[in-house]
Amino acid sequence: MTLLIILLVVSIVLLAPIVVRPSLTTDRAGRIFAFCAIIVLPLMAGFAGLSEHVERTKTVEFCTSCHVMQKYGKSLHIDDLEHLAGQHWQYNRVPQETACFSCHTNYTLYGDYKAKLRGLRHVYVQYLGTIPSKISLYSPYNNRECLHCHGSSRSFVEAVPHKDEMKAIRANGRSCLDKGCHGTVHDVAQVDSLSLWPKEEK
């Protein structure tokens, strides 16, 4: 972030002579300077800024900045180990700052940008469209997102309930989030009445 700010400030400083004295571009050196100041540096700054913004879109703070997502953010604080999102967030099983993105993106090669394009559609709906009364996933949650971290862990492999269903779980035939398994995730319907951790988060 510091390097980005320095790059942006240097870009502005180098543009100033062209604004004040555009005649400096009459000679070759001046034209090269103008090309670097107007094209090269701003392009570098633009790409660096874009990268910073894309990284920010992965944060919980960003996701929950829209009112419609605030209960989902609150569900990270539910003080109950049965609640999957809260358990993962509170015990740092996913990075706390980017918890939403850790689970709600695809781990495929183009997953990051696909998720971001979908996010742009969400911005459109938030401000210009009608927010649906019930928010649900575009497609059933893929076990791949769980197995990406848990797939080779001993606790997953040796868990007794998993042994008979291992093939189906790995093939996404039996969802990790099925009722009776790990079916309680965000529970936004109940979040206002549940105990939270840390206690001051209300």
């Binding site: 543009l15 604004v19 555009p22 103008a34 107007i38 701003p42 700054a45």
Partner: peptide, 12 residues
């Protein structure tokens, strides 16, 4: 040239 530099400056 002045306008170009100013536009880029505003963008930054």
């Amino acid at each position: 040239l002045r306008a170009s530099a100013l536009l880029v400056m505003v963008g930054i």
